[in-house]
Simulated assay, not measured.
Amino acid sequence: MIHHLSIAARDPNYAAGVLAELMGGTAIPFPPNPGSFFALQLDEHGSGVEVYPAGTEIQPGGEVGSSFVNKDARGYGSTHFALSVSTDADTVQAIAQRAGWHCFDCNRGPFHVIEVWVENETMVEVLPPQYAREYLAFTRPDNVTAAMAKAGTASARQR
């Protein structure tokens, strides 16, 4: 289980606030990296998303732990994650629209996701309850390996 992860945003406070709203949680400052915020789902798993200022790199720091270094701002990247929420699909889309973020209801074949693009640069696959049930059915330990082997390549998603 992943308890938290981090992404970068040009406006971390706003991005964390919108993510927290999608999760039905709250956003708070993240003091270890000034200017960062933590969107907390407030569930029994400690689920959350740390949102750092764009350009932040996490670098190894040896026994004292990692350090945060700010580099150039970023754009699109390869990082994305799936986020199960108790929020219904219509509300997810309304929140994303209000934030001014791209939002697409997508059929991945064995399951659906709502792509919410944080600041129109970082994709989050939001899974309202029905979509989460589909995803969990697909990723059951007794099913996922064979299902992925059968899935093939989705050329429409490649450029």
Rank of each mutant, 00 (worst) to 15 (best):
I2T: 04
H3T: 08
H3A: 11
S6N: 14
S6H: 13
S6M: 10
A8Y: 02
A8W: 05
A9P: 00
R10Q: 12
D11P: 06
P12C: 10
N13Y: 01
A15Q: 08
A16D: 11
A20W: 07
A20G: 11
G25R: 07
G25I: 09
A27S: 15
I28V: 15
P29M: 05
F30S: 03
P31K: 03
F38R: 06
L40C: 11
Q41V: 14
Q41S: 12
E44D: 12
H45S: 09
S47R: 11
G48M: 12
G48E: 11
V49P: 12
V51A: 05
Y52E: 06
G55N: 14
G55S: 13
G55W: 12
I58N: 01
I58H: 01
I58A: 02
Q59D: 09
G62Y: 08
G62I: 13
E63M: 02
E63H: 01
V64W: 06
V64A: 12
G65F: 14
S66H: 13
V69S: 04
D72C: 11
D72L: 11
G75Y: 07
G75H: 06
Y76I: 15
Y76K: 10
T79D: 00
H80R: 02
A82P: 00
L83V: 11
S84Q: 10
S84P: 15
V85E: 02
S86I: 09
S86D: 13
D88R: 07
A89I: 01
Q93P: 00
A94V: 03
I95D: 13
I95N: 11
A96R: 02
Q97W: 02
R98P: 01
A99K: 15
W101F: 12
W101R: 07
C103M: 10
C103H: 07
C103K: 05
C106Q: 04
N107I: 05
R108S: 06
P110Y: 09
F111P: 03
I114E: 03
E115D: 14
W117K: 13
N120S: 15
N120Q: 11
E121K: 10
T122H: 05
T122I: 07
M123A: 14
V124T: 12
E125Y: 00
E125I: 02
P128S: 14
P129M: 02
Y131A: 02
A132M: 01
R133N: 04
E134H: 00
Y135T: 03
Y135C: 01
F138L: 04
R140W: 00
P141N: 10
P141A: 07
T145G: 00
T145Q: 02
A147V: 03
K150P: 05
K150G: 03
G152T: 08
G152I: 09
T153H: 09
A154W: 09
A156W: 01
Q158T: 06
R159N: 06
R159T: 05
